[in-house]
Design a binder for these strands. Structure first.
Lengths: 353, 353
DNA sequence: AATAAAAATGCAATCGATTGCGCACTTACT
DNA sequence: AGTAAGTGCGCAATCGATTGCATTTTTATT
């Protein structure tokens, strides 16, 4: 067959020009036919489709994207892919984006400002049609992100947002989360409630703490500085924080931990010290990590709808892409308090199986 | 400034042509200067760089990629992003790829054959420079992947590989994993050891079972069909399988579960039935999911170096890209048996904190 | 000063798909 | 028959960066 011989000569992928040559028509016609443009007769269209199929033609998206000034690509930047919350968000984004014909490119900042800047610039160079970002803990300047706004490229923040950049944002109700956790502990009869806070430059952690503080106030409990310790919330800082709290002249009888990781490490530390949970000490985490449900005692926590968050973020980006509008919204997703064993003095445990 | 006015007129991104016009030189010179081509004098190079900076010029990777027939992109297809093992692999790939100047695009098949096919075709259309794949459970035909081999596009399989396609593969030593788990249970004095197997069309699960069977044989223990139940290894199938096993006239006293998820659900089911672990029943999982370490009793399991696997996979792809060679290797990464409480009759527990 | 040699830069095609405009041909209608 | 409307398709420019080859400019040499 003739086109096979041609294909031999040039080992590269077949293009619309190859199809055109074969059929002795123009490339424009091929292009239009493959797009089902009614200007091309049905007969010609069929002929072209068939040959394209035979030749194993696949459109070169790069060329098409260049011409259309559109990459059909959405970028995602997260601190760490390898974290349940973030991978769930990505999963949600991917689902919605794929259905809309978009490709998702991801990159992780490892919570490092420099890497974040490099990534964002690379995303820009790749002309992503939109960028979804949760900023790195370490980031303090945001010029690299403002460029996207300046160039009018859709930008959506999730979870860790930048207040000074006006764009769509999607967060969970951290304030209410912190508030409800604290109220719950009070309701369970705990009197002195400590808090392991996260880095206060990040809104999400600041909000959790504010919710905590306001719940105390509402219940007439004084806010005690010594019971609030900020850290990066890794396992080790959980242990350090609980140690510090337990050495106080008047230690807490419950701790609202900034995340599940520290909740767990604190719990294990306390258990080793012979302190019973939840009898002697109530513990609540945040994020509803998969393990929080299955450890023993299971950890009360706040569920964040990560997958949903990803879906919403993708929808917001798609919306921005479609209507390059000027009005932005901040979506606040509700959180859910999940009461498990670690904070429940009267045992009514969630049944697993 | 003149270029600012120009920029006003055409609101799109500045290109090398804009720079060229401004400086009254040719675009070729600009292109070469930005690549630090020594053919361009230092003076001109500096001038160009400076103006590029001022104008906020960012190369259009799409155009460059089109011309160079190279997308600088590596595609990754996994069953589910939102799973610790896979997100860790992705994390490893991303790290190596980014350092090498590559972008990673990801997509999830949700273990569905159709979606996998669609994704792979889309990756092809996007002209990824290489594809890293762990195939969907449901996939049975592999034509969509063979195309990559036919077109000589680098392809690497990890974890779930396709035996009939000859290319680089990277797997963990599932056979030895299964063998060691079983040997360990025997060493601990368990006599009747059951196995919750995964889908046997996937090599990885078949290998685990083979390791199990061979370890039994080596120790002179007869292989008992009724003690081996295959499923998709979700929580519910773990419960179903353990139920079925416990109803046998001669139930097992230990179970090697195909993954940690079923190990956990089985364990919880057994606990609710008043069966003590590890005293009455030994349990071992597979994969070392984060929760396996922190549940109680902690679950003995096989650690798979997921992050490393991702790094290796990226290296293999980069190698294939660099030397489009014909010789492929299958890297078998070692697994590690992690002995925890669930299978240890003499308590020597891993200390957490 | 003349010529060779070296250095610096420009021209124009290329990558593959898209699209405004226009040409050729068919059918319809007065 | 002659004009108008309609149908089917092709030409050539475009998207932005790259590169082989050619041309111009500079420097060195006799």
């Amino acid at each position: 067959m003739c086109f096979n011989q041609l294909a031999m000569h040039k080992k590269s992928e077949p293009t619309i020009h190859d199809i055109a040559r074969e059929l002795k028509i123009s490339a424009s016609t091929v292009s239009r036919a493959l797009q089902n443009n009614p200007r091309i007769s049905q007969k010609t269209r069929d002929k072209i489709r068939e040959l394209a199929e035979t030749m194993g033609y696949r459109p070169n998206t790069l060329a098409s994207n260049l011409r259309n000034k559109k990459s059909n690509t959405i970028g995602i930047v997260v601190p760490l892919i390898n974290r349940h919350f973030f991978s769930s968000v990505i999963s949600g984004v991917e689902e919605v984006a794929f259905k809309a014909g978009y490709t998702v490119v991801i990159s992780q900042s490892n919570d490092l400002a420099n890497k974040e800047i490099a990534i964002v610039q690379s995303m820009f160079a790749n002309r992503v049609d939109g960028l979804i970002v949760s900023i790195a803990m370490q980031s303090t300047t945001f010029e690299h992100l403002k460029i996207f706004k300046k160039r009018n490229i859709p930008l959506v923040f999730f979870d860790r947002v930048v207040p000074e950049i006006e764009t769509d944002k999607i967060v969970v109700d951290d304030y209410m989360g912190g508030f409800r956790v604290t109220q719950h502990l009070i309701d369970q009869g705990y009197q002195r409630i400590g808090h392991m806070a996260g880095p206060q430059n990040l809104m999400t952690y600041a909000d959790r703490k504010n919710g905590y503080a306001d719940a105390l106030k509402k219940n007439g409990i004084p806010y005690d500085e010594s019971l609030v310790i900020s850290s990066t919330l890794i396992s080790e800082s959980g242990v350090a924080a609980v140690q510090q709290m337990m050495e106080l002249p008047n230690p807490p009888d419950a701790i609202f931990c900034g995340n599940d990781t520290t909740a767990l490490s604190a719990m294990i530390y306390l258990r080793n010290k012979g302190i019973r949970i939840p009898e002697d000490m109530g513990i609540v985490g945040f994020s509803n990590e998969p393990f929080s449900k299955v450890v023993s005692p299971s950890i009360s926590t706040i569920a964040q709808p990560a997958f949903l968050m990803g879906q919403k973020a993708a929808e917001l980006i798609l919306h921005q892409i479609a209507h390059k509008g000027k009005s932005y919204q901040t979506v606040v997703l509700p959180t859910e308090l999940i009461i498990r064993e670690s904070s429940q003095r009267k045992k009514i445990t969630e049944k697993l199986f």
